[in-house]
Amino acid sequence: MTSVSIFGPADEPITLDIAQPFAPARVSTTRRYLMCPPRYFTVEYAINPWMDPSQPTSTELAMEQWTALKDTYERLGHDVSVIEPQQGLPDMVFAANSGTVIDGRVLGSRFRAEQRAAEADHFRRWFLESGYKAVVMPTAVNEAEGDFTWTGQLLLAGTGFRTDPGAHSEAQEVLGVPVVSLQLVDPRFYHLDVALFMLDDQSERPLVAYYPEAFSPGSQRVLRRLFPDAVIANDDDAVCLGLNAVSDGRHVVMPVEATNLAEQVARRGFEPVLVDISELRKSGGGPKCCTMELRG
């Protein structure tokens, strides 16, 4: 059996046992994350299918859920840095969209939606003030880790709704890593990080989880070739943004509603850590959207 820890705003853990066949031992690695508190969170415009300004939102609840997510990372031994939010930028909480960091090199973001454009420069200044020397701002539209996923060996790069295809070659040139382009076709899954996430980026055989229907037929074939052992999510997993998850190689922080996906990753030897982030999902975000990884 494996234990699943559920943490919500009340910060009271609930343990759920999931039957698990033989699976390899998983090893966590300490990660460094950058997050931004949702102090000004609201839904006042619609730039993706999840956003509905007519529905009420609670900034207080968003702060509680974000704090529980940050506390979860720190409880698991990870280092979390925090950037100050800016009034008038309600989506700045989704830090993953503002930078891609590999081996200490930073490729900033260039947002497609004008409502989020100003976020990019706030993050650029944070990187410079934090001692990063190699910081490059893109010329092509690129929503950073929203559409860029590092496997430990290559960069998976999504396009179709937000990030321009030209940003993929720019990322390869700036970051100096091989890039594989993937075409997204379902507007609900407008970013790569709501359709796919890395479970293990430290092994010789990286392991991912993904939702095939979010991708074009050709991209599905690419994913099957690259990751023949992948965890395949179903529609229920996908529509609760269960794939907007964060793994440290052992613990997988994911939305509490993604029970089928949690069982699948547990069967592979990982430990799901389920968090309630339902308020931020009203803007189309989950744990990964709130979390930029600082590599190197």
Rank of each mutant, 00 (worst) to 15 (best):
E114C: 08
M1Q: 14
T15Q: 11
T72Q: 00
L274M: 14
V275E: 01
Q202N: 15
M92C: 05
M63D: 11
A113G: 04
S3P: 15
T57V: 12
A95M: 11
L155H: 04
S109E: 00
V222Q: 09
G249T: 07
V185C: 05
S81M: 13
P178H: 09
V180F: 04
P56Q: 01
G99C: 04
A25T: 11
G88M: 07
F123P: 05
E143M: 04
A258K: 03
V239D: 12
F227R: 02
V252Q: 14
E271I: 12
E84P: 10
A209V: 01
P217C: 09
G77T: 06
A10N: 15
P165E: 03
E114H: 15
Y45G: 04
T149W: 11
V180T: 10
E170V: 00
P56S: 01
F22A: 12
H251I: 06
G108V: 05
L280Q: 04
V231P: 00
E12W: 15
D11H: 14
D121T: 15
V43F: 13
A140S: 13
T57R: 12
L243D: 00
F41H: 08
R112N: 01
M137V: 01
F161Y: 09
I83Y: 06
G284K: 05
E213M: 11
G88C: 07
E173I: 15
P85E: 14
P217Q: 08
G146P: 02
S130C: 07
